[in-house]
Design a protein around this nucleic acid. Sequence first.
DNA 1: GGTATTTTAGGTTGCGGACCAAAGATTCGG
DNA 2: CCGAATCTTTGGTCCGCAACCTAAAATACC
Lengths: 137, 137
Amino acid sequence: MKLSVKVDYACRVLAQMAKYYGTDELAHIEQLAAVEAVPANYLVQILSELRNGGLINSRRGKQGGYALARPPTEITLYDIVKLIEGDLLELNGTGEGHSGRRVNAIWREVRGALEAQCRSYSLDQFAAKSDDEMYYI
Amino acid sequence: MKLSVKVDYACRVLAQMAKYYGTDELAHIEQLAAVEAVPANYLVQILSELRNGGLINSRRGKQGGYALARPPTEITLYDIVKLIEGDLLELNGTGEGHSGRRVNAIWREVRGALEAQCRSYSLDQFAAKSDDEMYYI
DNA sequence: GGTATTTTAGGTTGCGGACCAAAGATTCGG
DNA sequence: CCGAATCTTTGGTCCGCAACCTAAAATACC
């Protein structure tokens, strides 16, 4: 079960945008694409979804760009995944078979725990300040 | 992020086989397919993977069939998912982009928690005894 | 030898993920 | 008002994979 590249891109780009929060600067597609190594043509769609989902605001025209709609502390990993991927651990079966309902019930419990876990991470924890690169490099 | 039908099938079928554990009866493909509403032609592949993964044993020929390789208490949800789906929440990016590593690190933490959660469910909890149908019907 | 089973090795079909492309819509500077 | 810089929207492509089906071969029992 792999998580999509799309949600990875979304997290990276949002982490990048978190650094702009508080300033009145706006982030641009081309710039975000370059810094986070995301194909610009694909990023267009992602930003569009993030906007329709209410996570970011946009302004068009010259001096246009994107900004977080809320403080980084109020955007959780759950918000991102839910918006981009839909329900996590979504189960398809309508409880068919003799053990169908039982298995579904268990997966629902697991999903609950996973959602709680995802809600505990907010964007401010994504925004790595430049200092932690020192540890890795 | 939806979990595959395949892993759902595997859980259901294993839950069914758990009921045979302790007896010396073997489960058959056709019968499992019928009881758990799984396409028999597909189930062939699934049982093959479960066997190669060491979760079940098989015997062929007349009076052949399948049985759990270990007690139901020693087969966890994690074992099943890991075998069928591979790593859960598998991340693809090699940490590209400015926030790549940071995002990966967070997902790794989430995955750790999810794995622990999955390890806490074992097959005996899947095997619904007939009594709990009374509550649902 | 005949029958009931698993084993193995293919094939098919449709859908979705990961992109690319380009014509509009808006805003601003001059 | 013109033109440049940006977002917006819409459509398309390509490839891999999930979820099946098919059938011949191997094994085991009677």
